[in-house]
């Protein structure tokens, strides 16, 4: 009796609990289908269209995929593989250059954004530097730094700097004046205002700038190596192209694509945490209106 009594609500509960998972399970399946459907169709189309391609420029997808592993991951030891020799160093230069751009861009941006005369002094000059297509800085920096690692890191840093810098300036400039006055009234110190008012307040714009900067940094990583270098991912890809190693070249293009996708994914995860408050704020604004 007691057992029956105890089980009755339990099963009812289990039933309702099951009902929701079943619906969400279908929801999950549906969204997975949506997510993989079109990519699979496209890949299949590529596969079929090139299946018996004789064109030297369009090798069959099966061949490209078959060369992907050997091209990047074969060697006497793992340390000898192209992945470790070329891809990881390129990635390292990208990250160092990008980090320099972030630190300089946000630091100078807060300074320029907060000090009005300084901003008015610097703005036209900064607009000009931002407007220079970053790739043209590759030959300029080559004069100073040769074709080594420092040139490539510098190219990435100087190219990625401007979007971050100008967006930070814009973000700090556009801070709500009430917030600024409040911080002043509460006698926040200079550093307190930077850390608790300017950086968080400008973070949506900073993230926007950082996102633009990331794609510019990737472009610069590749072309600084295509233009002048003896190693690196971009160099490898161009080398394959020049020696007409077409399947290897395609595998390099795919490698570059995967890197781009991976970096943008990491970026999104990293910034989702920084901007959690902002998305909540936007939602509440929309809901409230």
């Amino acid at each position: 009796m007691t057992a029956a009594q105890a089980t009755a609500p339990a099963t009812a509960q289990a039933a309702t609990r099951q009902a929701t998972p079943r619906r969400t399970a279908w929801g999950v399946v549906r969204s997975v289908l949506y997510a993989v459907g079109l990519p699979l169709v496209l890949l299949a189309a590529w596969w079929v269209a090139t299946a018996d391609s004789e064109s030297p420029f369009n090798p069959p997808l099966s061949e490209i995929l078959a060369t992907f592993g050997p091209t990047w991951f074969s060697g006497d030891s793992f340390a000898d593989t192209r992945f470790v020799q070329d891809v990881l160093p390129s990635l390292g230069r990208l990250l160092v250059g990008y980090a320099i751009a972030l630190v300089l861009g946000i630091g100078l941006g807060v300074l320029i954004g907060a000090v009005r005369p300084l901003r008015e002094l610097a703005e036209p000059v900064l607009e000009f530097f931002r407007a220079i297509p970053p790739p043209v800085m590759v030959p300029v920096l080559m004069l100073f730094l040769g074709v080594g690692t420092s040139m490539r890191v510098f190219v990435i840093a100087t190219g990625a700097l401007w979007p971050i810098l100008l967006n930070t300036v814009e973000g700090v400039r556009g801070l709500d004046p009430v917030l600024k006055d409040t911080a002043r009234a509460f006698r926040f110190g200079r550093w307190g205002r930077v850390r608790r008012l300017m950086l968080p307040g400008a973070s949506p714009q900073i993230v926007t700038g950082a996102r633009q900067a990331l794609s510019i940094a990737i472009i610069l990583m590749v072309i600084s190596e295509m233009f002048a270098a003896r190693d690196g991912l971009g160099f490898s890809v161009v080398q394959f192209q020049r020696s007409f190693a077409v399947p290897e070249m395609w595998s390099g293009v795919i490698m570059l694509g995967l890197l781009g996708v991976l970096l943008s994914f990491v970026f999104r995860v990293a910034t989702a945490a920084v901007l959690a408050w902002y998305h909540g704020y936007l939602r509440s604004q929309r809901g409230g209106a």
Partner: peptide, 16 residues
Amino acid sequence: FLRPVPSVALIPIAVL
């Protein structure tokens, strides 16, 4: 997926 693929990755293909 396609958006973050760096366009310069297409340079070798474009040249060929």
